[in-house]
């Protein structure tokens, strides 16, 4: 799939995953790459950017195995950003689906 396209969607994926619960970086990246073929390293610049823009906060939490892990937590402004993105996404996919339907039915 197109690189630009994926990157836009990556932001949405990260926000959606954090909406349910706090997660650490590795977990986030694995969850996404189970579904979408991404270069896993590209998630990190994204995570840092969104953190600096105030959409996430981070904290360290001890793990039962190995060193402490950095967890990402969605802030209130992150939640409202997610809300906006989801709405855009729905409008966009509805539009595309409508066009596909018309195209496949062949009018």
């Amino acid at each position: 799939m197109n690189v630009q396209f994926k990157k836009g969607v990556l932001e949405l994926c990260v926000l959606v995953l954090l909406n349910k619960k706090d997660r650490y970086g590795y977990e986030l990246v694995q969850k996404i790459s189970e579904q979408i073929d991404i270069s896993e390293g590209s998630a990190y610049p994204l995570l840092r950017r969104l953190t600096k823009e105030g959409y996430f906060t981070t904290y360290l939490k001890e793990s039962t195995e190995g060193p402490p892990r950095k967890y990402y937590q969605l802030t209130d402004s992150g939640k409202s950003y997610l809300h906006d993105l989801l709405q855009e996404w729905e409008e966009f996919t509805n539009g595309v689906n409508q066009l596909i339907k018309e195209g496949v039915n062949g009018d």
Binding site: V3, Q4, K7, S39, P45, R49
Partner: peptide
């Protein structure tokens, strides 16, 4: 920065 070139596989 948000838009272009991320997720480049096969680099």
């Amino acid at each position: 920065v948000g838009l272009v070139k991320g997720g480049m596989k096969h680099v």
